[in-house]
């Protein structure tokens, strides 16, 4: 927790860093199978012996931090656990609305975050370093938004000075494939065939060829009772000239189109803010 390093948390937000072993212990104690972002089975690949050792290490770590206590009771071992820790993990495990944020920089490791929107808490879960998970819990919708905006490197960037256009999804796939094969001429040719003006096709090909990062924002509404789940969101191409927003739409003939348009960072922020639901609780902050 950042507070332990001398920085007190704000009134509305608490930040915890948990080791993978600590998470294994907490999932086991809370009888939670997994969390979004940990895979279907966080213990996959571990032998029984390795798992026991990992949990023992995690338990000792949590006990040393003072967040968990195990003592003998009348009916066996009694586990005591900090309520804030439990609330954070329960929100991650069972929130029905999750905002998925991924940012894939050109030459760096990908960064993936999940904003779990519980009824009373927002929790941003990300992996800052291998084996270390960061949980930022907040009752402030603005704080939650700020963390997402920072994760996507949205600042005050202006939109690229170009027009937007719409093409078939399959066509856009061919454009990106051609660029990945360093065949810029082919990508421009494909766009021209779809009616994209020459200069715009050239600029798009240049932008995609020199991407800083490829990001995605997707809001998932999970129906835990087995009903249909849904998602909505957009992609972001971050180029030297600014952001391009990508949105797909289904067409009447069963296909789908991709709309690519330049956007200002501020517009992206507004779109993300519109996706985040408000908290239910009376103590929620703006």
């Amino acid at each position: 927790m950042q507070g332990e390093k001398g920085k007190m948390p704000s009134d509305a937000t608490v930040t915890l860093d948990l080791g993978a072993e600590e998470i294994l212990v907490l999932l086991n104690v809370l009888r939670v199978g997994t969390l979004p972002g940990l895979g279907e089975d966080p213990t996959a690949g571990l032998s029984e012996d390795q798992l026991q050792r990992a949990r023992a290490a995690g338990l000792n770590s949590l006990r040393a931090r003072g967040w968990m206590k195990v003592e003998a009771g009348e009916s066996g071992l009694k586990t005591s656990i900090d309520s804030t820790l439990v609330a954070i993990l329960l929100t991650c495990a069972a929130a029905k609305t999750v905002l998925f944020i991924s940012r894939l920089p050109a030459n760096e490791a990908p960064a993936i975050s999940y904003l779990h929107c519980g009824p009373h808490l927002f929790v941003v879960h990300s992996t800052e370093q291998p084996g270390i998970h960061r949980f930022i819990a907040t009752i402030s919708r603005n704080d939650a938004l700020t963390h997402i905006v920072q994760a996507l490197h949205l600042d005050h960037q202006s939109p690229p000075a170009m027009a937007g256009f719409t093409v078939e999804e399959e066509t856009f796939g061919r454009v990106t494939a051609a660029i990945q094969e360093n065949n810029g001429a082919e990508s421009i040719h494909i766009l021209r065939e779809q009616g994209v003006p020459d200069d715009l096709a050239q600029q798009v090909a240049d932008s995609i060829s020199n991407l800083r990062a490829n990001s995605m924002v997707a809001l998932m509404r999970l129906d835990i009772q087995g009903g249909p789940s849904s998602s909505e969101g957009f992609g972001l191409l971050e180029s030297t000239s600014g952001f391009w927003m990508l949105e797909t739409r289904s067409t009447a003939n069963g296909g789908s189109t991709v709309t690519i348009q330049p956007v200002a960072a501020r517009v992206c922020q507004e779109r993300i803010e519109a996706l985040i639901p408000p908290l239910d609780s009376a103590n929620a902050r703006a």
Binding site: A12, T84, H120, A137, I139, L279
Partner: peptide, 9 residues
Amino acid sequence: DFKSAVDST
């Protein structure tokens, strides 16, 4: 306030 949110959760 945060503690209240934890209890509510």
